[in-house]
Nucleic acid binder design. Structure first.
Lengths: 226, 226
DNA sequence: AATCATTGCTTTGTATACGAAAAAGAGATT
DNA sequence: AATCTCTTTTTCGTATACAAAGCAATGATT
């Protein structure tokens, strides 16, 4: 594994997990010594994070971790809706029905055995996403979706879902999967619309409530989500 | 201007214009000496082109200009439809009606003075795209659209539009712009759908005809369009 | 006392040197 | 004659050295 890949993976994980909070300045020498690589591969990692939109060049001299505010979340979900509704339609047309029928069954059961923790649930969603990508067979769309998902990790972390929302989310995913399995493109797309609407509403209300809101005020907006 | 920016701009222009044909290997020392920069900024330029999807690492040792085949064009237009229909809807909701009314008028006139050449027409389309981005107010969506447009330059070059198609395209753009000006989101989205359907059909028939087809068979597919 | 200028220090951008790995070519052996 | 192996050469990945550009701090001048 290349040093630039290790640096990128390390910084990505730290940004997504919140260890590197929005606004943190990422100086090259500081981060390169911390991560045990030289400046050259670290610069490549920062460049990749910048095209991802996870860091921004606040000034020509200083690179900071980008912030995620309410406006960003709304914008992200607008793009997400465009991409995932399209993906759901294409999967309904081209996907393997058996695969999505099985996924629908898994989402039904996940509601019952929810006590396993949400890591297992997020893992199931990751499987669903992977099967969606495989069914769509469109590298451009898949790449755009991958970028959206990169940002979504931080959004999910900002507003930890409550149990009721997780159960509803599982039911919504089950419907999407079964619609794809039934080759019902309209239903798959509209169920995706419903799911994203509910997910966004849940996140925004969670952010408005005092418990999970981000402490720092929005200072630096995400940009350049290529 | 940084050396890495110059290298990126130069390579981008050469790939989009076809000077660097698909399959051309881009060795680091060769390109760095040719462009008059050292390997470090050239590597950054190649990295950016790779995330754009304009070059691919054919093997861990050799980077080549990516190819554009019929399958890529279909995939690109699937993503384009998702993004541009959404953008048209949002622009109809949020855009400045006067701006798009003026654009609609410009598209009407462009049909009459088409003799100016298609450079002027493509410039008008670029203005339309810029106004669309401004109206949408969504950096994520705008970034995704910018990436699509980067690829679209090569597709347009592969299949040079015929005059009749350009006239029809102007009329389709006029309808989209006026629908946005009239705040008719459904019409704007559906007119975009129609436009992209016609544009794709025109390109695919042009590629099937013997004149403008790409000489080399598809060997290396585009990927990683982040 | 406040402001402007100059100097030095920090940080980025670029060039180059070094090491490792893979590919190509030549030679020997079967 | 073909193939396998060893060697050589090329190319990439990384580290480091160098230069240029900002920013800050300090001192002098008004």
């Amino acid at each position: 594994m290349r040093a630039s890949d290790r640096a990128y993976a390390a910084l990505l994980e730290e940004i997504q997990s919140g260890v590197l909070a929005p606004g943190t300045v990422l100086a090259e020498v500081e981060q390169s010594t911390r991560l045990g690589v030289s400046r050259t591969p670290l610069r490549e990692a920062l460049s990749r994070l910048a095209t991802d939109g996870l860091v921004v060049q606040q000034s020509p001299r200083v690179t900071v971790v980008s912030d995620v505010d309410t406006s960003d979340i709304r914008e992200l979900f607008e793009l997400r809706r465009a991409l995932e509704e399209t993906a759901a339609r294409l999967a309904a047309q081209r996907g393997d029905a058996a695969v999505f029928a099985e996924l629908a069954r898994a989402f039904s059961q996940s509601t019952l055995t929810r006590g396993d923790g949400l890591d297992a649930y997020y893992s199931l969603i990751a499987q669903f996403d992977a099967q969606l990508d495989a069914a769509v067979v469109n590298d451009y769309l898949t790449s755009a979706l991958r970028n959206v998902r990169t940002h979504l990790v931080r959004v999910r972390r900002l507003a930890r879902d409550n149990p009721e929302r997780l159960a509803a989310s599982a039911a919504e995913h089950r419907l999407i999967a079964s619609a794809i399995a039934a080759r019902d493109a309209d239903l798959a797309a509209h169920a995706t619309h419903v799911h994203l609407h509910n997910a966004l509403s849940s996140i925004l209300t969670a952010l408005d409530s005092p418990s999970g809101g981000s402490p720092g005020a929005a200072s630096q907006s995400i940009q350049g989500a290529a």
